[in-house]
Nucleic acid binder design. Structure first.
Length: 512
RNA sequence: GGUGCGUUAGCAAAGCGGUUAUGCCCCGGAUUGCAAAUCCGGUUAGCCCAGUUCGACUCUGGGACGCACCUCCA
């Protein structure tokens, strides 16, 4: 039974979908006026992991991750660049997709853009007004009357009295209450036509919070299963979403609220305002994308995650161990799986691409995004090809228990290491296949080990031909018992970042 | 000031009221021409104080420290 920590309850709860076998999930995505940083990478990777596990568990998942493409910062940045809003946002949406693909993040079913949902937002604001929860102020803005909504604060655990907004921010004088937030911003003279929409309240543009409420309910319904996002969105963004959606629809909005922890630098939150962020593409120049994904998944999604080169190096070393096990022990799934009829009935297989040998025939209502692997642009490309998990095997059982316990990926990855040890010990091709299959559930270990171990050539490094020549020279020296020369060559290669390994099958190399 | 979360070995990071987490590092052994890889073994824990308990890293209370939110932020 899957348990998920629900921010709303501040506790782990048994997960029960609203509609049996189906999960509808919404995650707050990016505001696209700049490149994504590692904090964004964490949201994308974490909820990618979540949707993968839900699918692996047999659920049909509808996953929505929105794109905010209208916002003060976007408008300002476009003006600074002397660029249209659309051109700016499209550029960074493309960049975001590149980064996500590189990290092995599967595309959500829907990536709605705020600018395409303005009619739905206006309709919702109309409902709020009709329900006495919204009012137009003298300055033309339409605001949400927070004190009229009884449940305000239930997600963030804040009471209206605690908030006392006036203490920290200049009170917007036209609001009835300082805590009220804007639903519709009246158009300003100096803004481009591109950011103005007609409405019964006059020309203007939507407030940030209403976007998610409108897109969520349009694509997933008034009441859906999971809503996720970074912990900083808990208040006010998600609190306001609840007020809007429940205020408009008069029913519960979301059952389970999930919030991921921050990425930190020197123990401080990585954020744009602090300026201490590293963009994904920056980091990927130095580290393999799978190392970054592994680094993120090695911590629990709710824990803080400190970023540093030392930690990435550590993650690289750990992932190398996993790939070494596969390199030495090529996976070979067993064709006949014993006891498969009694196979676990909740998990169906993941990532299978026409392997055909699917003996359990269980609840196969997974609507995995219908993209074949050739469309996965990142390191997930060229995968070994859909190896199935044998869920009856003991490691798989431990893996599943870990994942079912609020997506405990650190524990699940520990199982992977235990399995790697077992693989090295037994040299079992079936266990190696199991390792690939289980790691695949996390979007890891799907590459040819050689590609991982020999990849990531840095500029100015040796190319394969040069390495091959050196290895040949060393083998010749060894043949002549000229170990001094052989060791010298090995040392020189090591200094160039190339590690040599003499095995039964000859000499192989990898990058340090 | 209000609210919430955290404090585990050299570093990173989990579970668990009593039994090896895991990875990297370090030490010893096997293996190797020597290494690397691999295997076997080992060293290094649980912020402080009190309580509950036969027994607490794990539960309860208090304290210290750290982080976050209360303002746009994943």
């Amino acid at each position: 039974m899957l348990k998920i920590y629900n921010t709303l309850a501040r506790d782990k709860q048994d997960f029960q979908p609203i509609e049996p076998g189906k999960v509808r999930m919404y995650v707050c995505g990016m505001t696209v006026y700049d490149y994504c940083h590692l904090g964004h990478a964490r949201v994308m990777v974490v909820f990618d992991m979540v949707q993968r596990w839900l699918r692996a568990s047999g659920y049909a998942v509808t996953y929505v991750r929105n794109i905010t493409d209208i916002d003060d910062k976007i408008i300002r940045r476009a003006a600074d660049n002397n660029e249209s809003i659309h051109s700016l946002t499209q550029r960074f949406i493309d960049a975001m997709h590149e980064d996500a693909d590189a990290l092995g993040v599967q595309r959500p079913e829907h990536e709605p853009r705020a600018t395409q949902y303005v009619p739905q937002m206006l309709e919702m604001i109309g409902k709020l007004e009709a329900n006495g929860l919204a009012y137009q102020a003298a300055d033309g803005d339409v605001n949400y009357a927070v004190r009229k909504f009884a449940g305000y604060g239930k997600l963030s655990g804040k009471s209206l009295e605690d908030l006392r907004a006036g203490e920290r921010v200049d009170v917007a004088t036209d609001k009835n209450d300082p805590l009220d937030f804007v639903l519709w911003k009246a158009a300003k003279e100096n803004e481009a036509d591109e950011v103005k929409w007609d409405s019964k309240w006059g020309r203007g543009r939507p407030g940030w919070h209403i976007e998610c409420s409108a897109m969520g309910s349009d694509l997933l319904g008034k009441h859906f299963d999971i809503h996720g996002g970074g912990a900083d969105l808990q208040f006010p963004h998600h609190e306001n979403e609840i007020a809007q959606s429940e205020g408009a629809h008069q029913c519960q909005y979301v059952n389970t609220w999930m919030h991921n922890g921050f990425v930190r630098v020197d123990n401080e939150k990585m954020s744009k305002s602090l300026g201490n962020f590293f963009t994904i593409r920056e980091v990927l120049k130095q580290y393999d994308a799978e190392v970054v994904r592994f680094f993120i998944l090695r911590a629990h999604y709710r824990s803080p995650l400190n970023y540093s080169d030392a930690h990435l190096d550590d993650a690289k070393g750990a992932l190398t161990r996993l790939y070494m096990a596969l390199k030495g022990n090529p996976p070979q799934p067993s064709l006949v799986r014993e006891g498969a009829e009694g196979a676990d009935s909740t998990l169906n297989r993941e990532g299978a691409q026409g392997t055909g040998s699917s003996p359990d025939g269980t609840t196969s209502h997974s609507t995995r995004p219908s993209k074949d692997d050739s469309q996965v642009a990142g390191y997930d490309k060229g995968r070994l090809g859909g190896v199935d998990v044998d869920w009856n095997e003991p490691h798989a059982a431990r893996f599943r228990a870990a994942m079912d316990d609020d997506f405990n990926t650190p524990e699940a990855i520990a199982v992977l290491f235990d399995l790697a040890n077992e693989v090295n010990k037994t040299r079992s091709p079936q266990l190696a296949a199991q390792l690939v299959a289980l790691a695949g559930v996390l979007g890891l270990l799907q590459r040819d080990p050689q590609e991982f171990l020999q990849g990531g050539a840095t500029a100015g490094g040796l190319d394969e031909a040069a390495i091959g020549a050196q290895i040949a020279a060393r083998i010749a020296a060894k043949k002549n018992k000229d170990f001094a020369s052989a060791d010298r060559i090995r040392k020189e290669l090591l200094e160039a970042g190339i590690v040599l390994e003499d095995g039964a099958a000859g000499t192989s190399w990898r990058r340090a």
